[in-house]
């Protein structure tokens, strides 16, 4: 493949088709919108409940519950704002993972073995980090 093949005369974002790049942008926007909505709901619930956080309390954070995805279901069920915050952050972290997954699908569909392999490696690494390395440090 010569260099001229790599430099088309129309706008090119690499090798994905315009429809694929549009859908990739949609994946990113949808994930972010869902995460932002969840975070706003959570903050709204905490504010309306008269949260007690102030500047002075930011320093010793150890007495507050850290981010724990395992509690999201029970907190949402109980109507706690903290559950919505945790859900929002989970959706936020899942968004780039979804983007890589979509890239894997798109490059496979467009018969690009190099990018398919690259996306697969990145996806596997992210999943190992989320489900193996992270919990290892808990």
């Amino acid at each position: 493949m010569g260099l001229s093949d790599a430099t088309p005369s129309v706008a090119s974002s690499g090798s994905l088709s315009p429809s694929a790049t549009h859908r990739m942008a949609l994946v990113l926007r949808t994930g972010l919108a869902a995460a932002a909505a969840s975070l706003l709901i959570g903050l709204g619930l905490l504010v309306s409940a008269g949260g007690s956080l102030d500047l002075g309390s930011l320093a010793p954070l150890a007495n507050r519950a850290a981010f724990d995805p395992r509690t999201v279901g029970s907190e949402l069920w109980a109507g706690h704002g903290g559950g919505w915050l945790t859900l929002g952050l989970l959706l936020l972290v899942a968004t780039p993972v979804a983007r890589v997954s979509f890239g894997l699908y798109s490059f496979h569909a467009e018969r690009d073995p190099l990018l398919t392999r690259a996306a697969l490696v990145v996806l596997l690494l992210l999943l190992v980090g989320l489900f193996a390395l992270g919990p290892l440090l808990r």
């Binding site: 975070l39 706003l40 930011l58 981010f67 972290v93 690494l125 980090g129 390395l133 440090l137």
Partner: peptide
């Protein structure tokens, strides 16, 4: 985003992520 997600995975595990602090910053 992908790079940060990889780092966050480990930071969450170590207890370095506080949702109440992070939420307004994210928005």
């Amino acid at each position: 985003g992908v790079t940060a997600a990889a780092g966050v995975a480990l930071l969450v595990g170590a207890g370095y992520v506080d949702p109440v602090l992070a939420a307004p910053l994210v928005v």
